[in-house]
Amino acid sequence: MNLSGRLNVTMHGPVGAPPIVFVHGFGCGQVMWRHVAPAFADDHRVVLLDLPGSGDSDLSLYRAERYTSLEAYRDDLVELLDELDLTDVVFVGHSVSAMIGVLVANAAPQRVGRLVLVAPSARYLDDDGYVGGFSERDIDELLGLMERNHLGWQDPLASLVAGAAPADVKRELEDSFCRTRPDIAAQFAAVTFRGDNRADLADVGVPTLVLQSRNDSVAPMAAGAFIRDHTEGSRMTVIDTYGHCPHLSAPAQTISAIQEFLEEH
C-alpha cells in the first residue's frame, strides 16, 4: 500500500486547487479537524491524514524503533507530499504537529509555502530560564496516566487469548478517533513532550501564523509568543477561547484567522 493509504489520507475540494494539509496533534486523529477543514474545501484541495500510529493509520507499519523523534514523522510527511506531488502547501499543524510542520517546511521548502501553527509549543519542559510549563515528573505522570486509561482500546491478542469476546466488549466506541494503541500513545507522548524544537524556528523561511488560544494550559501564551519571536516572518493571532484545541472550541474564529492569513500572504 502506498503511504497515502497507510496514513488514511482523505482529500476533499477541487483537484488542482491550492493544497491545504491539516495534521492533528498528540491525542486524536484527523477527525479533530471536522469543524474547520470543510470551510476550505471550496477553493482548496483539502488533505487530511492520520499520523503513523494514530487514528486509522495502518498500525502494522508502526515500528517503535523508528518513531523515536519528530524527524521520523517529518520524513513520512515529506514522503507523503512527494507522493501526492503537492507544492506550495499550506501546512496546518496542531500542537506537536505544528513543530512537525516546521521540520517539514525546513526539510522540503519546495513543498511547503505557508505554515499555520495551531496551539504550538517548541519546548514543553522548563529549561534553564525557558518556561515550557512542564517538568520531567509531569511527563512521567502523564505516561502513567495514559497507561491507566486505554479509552476503550483492547489488545486484539488479549481478546484472542480470552476466547471469543462477549458482545459488550466488542462494542465499538464512538470515540475511536481518540483511541490509540497504549504503547504507541505512550511513545508519542514521550516524543511530543520531551522534544525541543526551539533551534528549528530560526530556519523557517515561509510566512507563518501562530494561532494561540487565550487560555491554554498545554501550550500557554508564553510558548506561542516564543515561537512568534523566534520565527522570522511570523505573526500571532490570539483566539479568545479556553483550552488547547481552538479548532474544536472556537472553530469559526480559527477558520477566519487562517483565511485572513491566507489572504494576506
Binding site: 496533534g25 498528540f26 491525542g27 486524536c28 477527525v31 479533530m32 500542537s95 512542564f134 517538568s135 509531569d138 511527563i139 505522570e141 502523564l142 502513567g144 496516566l145 495514559m146 486509561n149 479509552l151 464512538e174 470515540d175 478517533f177 481518540c178 513532550f193 491554554d216 494550559s217 498545554v218 483550552g243 488547547h244 484545541c245 474544536l248 472550541s249
Partner: peptide, 17 residues
C-alpha cells in the same frame, strides 16, 4: 499537571465529539 494535559488532549475532544 499530567491530568490537565490528558483532559486537553483526549477528554475534551472526546466530550466535544
Amino acid at each position: 499537571v499530567a491530568g490537565r494535559i490528558f483532559v486537553e488532549t483526549h477528554l475534551f475532544p472526546m466530550l466535544e465529539h
